[in-house]
């Protein structure tokens, strides 16, 4: 019944073919099968957001999607977006503002923030807080994270103007 299935997808631009159990969720696939440990597991019930990754360009909970559902998909993780330089300014802002402490939520937080920033414009602090409301951070109290995202929004807006 629960026989393994073959899947082929691209992860951070690399073609990947693996045989997986249907029950394997995306974040465990990335972490355990592919060794991409930058995506984290915090609750496995879709609440904390530590497992946030991008599938076909939009962010999803890595614990609430099965690896078999990613057959043919384009998956991006923190490792990929770091190497491409796509969020270098956001990472720099998080660093300058110390918008992370233990760093466990950070990959998911960065990908979530990037989705908001990619829409363009200047989100208010309230809009930033709303957008990251599904990403749990126990360390910072969120203030510094909101500061960092706000700073990047201003920076990107300024550079376009």
């Amino acid at each position: 019944m629960s026989r393994q299935l073959d899947i082929a997808l691209t992860v951070n631009g690399e073609r990947v073919s693996e045989r997986v159990e249907p029950r394997l969720n995306l974040v465990d696939f990335l972490r355990d099968t592919l060794g991409l440990t930058g995506s984290h597991v915090g609750c496995e019930h879709g609440v904390c957001g530590a497992c946030t990754v991008r599938v076909n360009g939009t962010i999803v909970r890595g614990c609430l999607m099965l690896a078999v559902q990613c057959d043919g998909a384009r998956v991006e993780t923190i490792e990929g977006v770091s190497d491409s330089g796509a969020i270098a300014d956001l990472q720099e802002a998080f660093t300058r503002r110390n918008a992370l402490q233990c760093g466990y939520c950070t990959p998911g937080m960065l990908l979530t923030a990037q989705e908001l920033l990619a829409r363009g414009g200047l989100p208010t602090r309230e809009e930033i807080r709303e957008h990251i409301s599904g990403n749990y951070c126990r360390c910072t109290g969120y203030h510094a994270i909101v500061d960092a995202i706000e700073a990047v929004a201003q920076q990107r807006n300024g550079s376009k103007a």
């Binding site: 019944m1 019930h45 879709g46 609430l64 099965l66």
Partner: peptide
């Protein structure tokens, strides 16, 4: 979408024999 179902599977609150994916 699986946003409730997979969470319940992850908690072993339900254990279907097969998932039929509509996606």
């Amino acid at each position: 979408g699986g946003q409730s179902l997979i969470a319940t599977l992850n908690m072993r609150l339900s254990s279907p024999a097969i998932l039929i994916d509509l996606n």
